[in-house]
Write a protein that binds this DNA or RNA. Structure first.
Length: 490
RNA sequence: GGUACCUUGGCCGAGUGGUUAGGCAACGGUCUGCAAAACCGUGUACAGCGGUUCGAAUCUGCUAGGUACCUCCA
């Protein structure tokens, strides 16, 4: 197998040739959502980024096992150091079972991901379903001597780990600097050192999410599920671990420490991180009032939005930036993407009805190679899109009768467009193009009307011609005349 | 304060030591009964000030501005 894919490894801060551990298999783990609220843009970026990687690895011939976890336990509220976590808090506020909250938001998350055409991962493990594995993982760390028990909780010994290995290799931090900058937090007395983090936390009496363990009734620490489930489903060493840049420290740093402490070696070979999203140049945050959920984008129901934006517009917009760049959402930028996306998809639709000629006057031969090269360069989707737009010009020229394309070139162009537009970038036409008999019948009816209009035009009966067009437009159709016919869409 | 990253034309956004990114918007033109679409043409952009070089927007130093993380966060 060729190894032409280069990906940026956060660990080494450079692009590296991707060579999987056990070809043709690739193991990939991505940090998924904490399901205590509606999905927002911040969830869309990693989902789409790693969906792109998942698709590209498969197109490159790999057999990929893609694991994306669901965090449904843990993650303490910073202002609730009494041991309440986000899901338990939400459950208490809404008078529900924690798992009821989890299920509700998980269903909504899945729906949003489907709308964005994000493929489901191979395995979607829940933290709550792997408590036993997490307890076993803690035992391994305790046995290795890198954790200690305190008041029914278990903490990771960062100082000892740093002495034997090195803490901070991913984020470029060292513990001396970290110690200087540590702020005073409540509930630190149980820890030997402020940098130590919980592997198991004893539950307070009012804490509703709890499981028995050798140390206390409680719940697993914040970082443990990824180390545990990654190892369980992908092995002691695996290829790719992804997530948002904000997770580099402390989450992924702690994961590395946990896995290395328990297994004696690092488990992840390539760390990949997507950059953040800003809205009108500002970080998105609940306190800043610019926190927009995916549903709000799809329906336009947020005061910062001028209009609704289709899921495919959001996807296209995100793909128009390379995943390691920040991407700023603004109405102006989104509208530009919406138009560009429509232009691209119209060209794709025209391509399907092009008629071949004896020779080509357009050059589309190296499109596949150019797009492949761009994808192999750390998933440079903006470049892929720019090449597709170049080809769109050629498609439109042929459709206008201003250029010709040979049968061979046409087949290649169709195959390449399908590969990159649909299979790799995961873009699809928004209108549901079902082939049910009702929609077929309705398409025929519209075609019939437009054919009558065409005849009227040929007879220079502009009154009838315009009447049909105006009526269809009023009903919401877009009508475009072409060289020798028409195009329409709803 | 510490660490890392960034600053490209009206907007978004790639890339690079010397050669057109691309999209949106704008302007002019072609086509068209009109409209829409499409096509053609037009912008001499790379934060500022030095340095290296035959040549830098691309390498380097400083300055200014911005973003992220520093135990909630995608």
């Amino acid at each position: 197998m060729e190894h032409n894919l280069f990906i940026y490894n956060t660990l080494t801060r450079r692009k590296e040739r991707f060579i999987p551990l056990n070809e043709p298999y690739v193991g990939m783990y991505v940090c998924g959502p904490t399901v205590y609220g509606d999905g927002h843009l911040g969830h869309a970026r990693p989902a789409i980024t790693f969906d792109l990687l998942f698709r590209w690895l498969q197109q490159s011939g790999y057999k990929v096992r893609y694991v994306r976890n669901i965090t449904d336990v843990g993650h303490l509220e910073h202002d609730a150091d009494e041991g309440e976590d986000k899901i338990a808090k939400k459950a208490r506020l809404e008078q529900k079972e924690p798992m009821e909250v989890v299920q509700y938001y998980l269903n909504r998350y899945h729906k949003a991901m489907e709308a964005l055409n994000v493929l489901p991962p191979s395995i979607e493990p829940h933290a709550s379903g792997h408590i036993i594995e997490q307890i076993e993982f803690i035992k391994q760390i305790l046995d290795a001597g890198y954790a200690y028990i305190s008041e029914g909780s278990v903490y990771f010994d960062v100082r000892k780990y740093d002495h034997d290995h090195k803490y901070g290799i991913l984020s470029g931090r060292n513990i001396d600097d970290l110690l200087e900058n540590t702020r005073e937090l409540d509930g630190q007395q149980e820890k030997h050192c402020s940098l130590d983090f919980a592997l198991w936390k004893k539950a307070q009496p009012e804490h509703i999410m709890r499981w028995p363990s050798p140390w206390s009734d409680g719940f697993p620490g914040w970082h443990l599920e990824c180390s545990t489930m990654g190892t369980k489903y992908l092995g002691q060493q695996f290829d790719i671990h992804g997530g948002g840049m904000d997770l580099v420290f402390p989450h992924h740093e702690c994961e590395i420490a946990q896995s290395t402490a328990a297994l004696g070696h690092e488990s992840v070979r390539y760390w990949m991180h997507n950059n953040m999203i800003t809205i009108n140049g500002q970080k998105m945050g609940k306190s800043l009032g610019n926190f927009i959920t995916l549903d709000e984008f799809f329906t336009g129901s947020h005061k910062l939005l001028d209009q609704a934006y289709a899921p495919m517009t959001i996807r296209f917009f995100i793909l128009q930036a390379q995943y390691r760049s920040t991407v700023d959402f603004s109405n102006e930028a989104l509208k530009a993407s919406e138009k560009g996306y429509q232009r691209l998809m119209e060209a794709y639709s025209r391509l399907k009805s092009l008629k071949p000629a004896a020779t080509s006057t357009v050059d589309v031969k190296d499109l596949r190679a150019k797009c492949t090269e761009a994808m192999n360069d750390d998933l440079n989707s903006p470049i892929v899109i720019s090449h597709l737009f170049e080809a769109a010009k050629a498609i439109n020229a042929v459709a206008d009768g201003k250029a010709t394309i040979s049968a061979e070139d046409l087949e290649e162009l169709k195959a390449t467009y399908k590969l990159f537009v649909e299979d790799v970038l995961g873009l699809k036409a928004d209108a549901a193009e079902g082939s049910s008999s009702t929609s077929d019948a309705y398409k025929k009816a519209v075609d019939l009307l437009l054919n009558i209009r065409l005849e009227a035009k040929q007879n220079k009966d502009w009154a009838t011609s315009d009447k049909i067009r105006n009526a269809l437009q009023a009903a919401g159709f877009t009508i475009k005349d072409t060289k020798d016919g028409f195009e329409w869409s709803l």
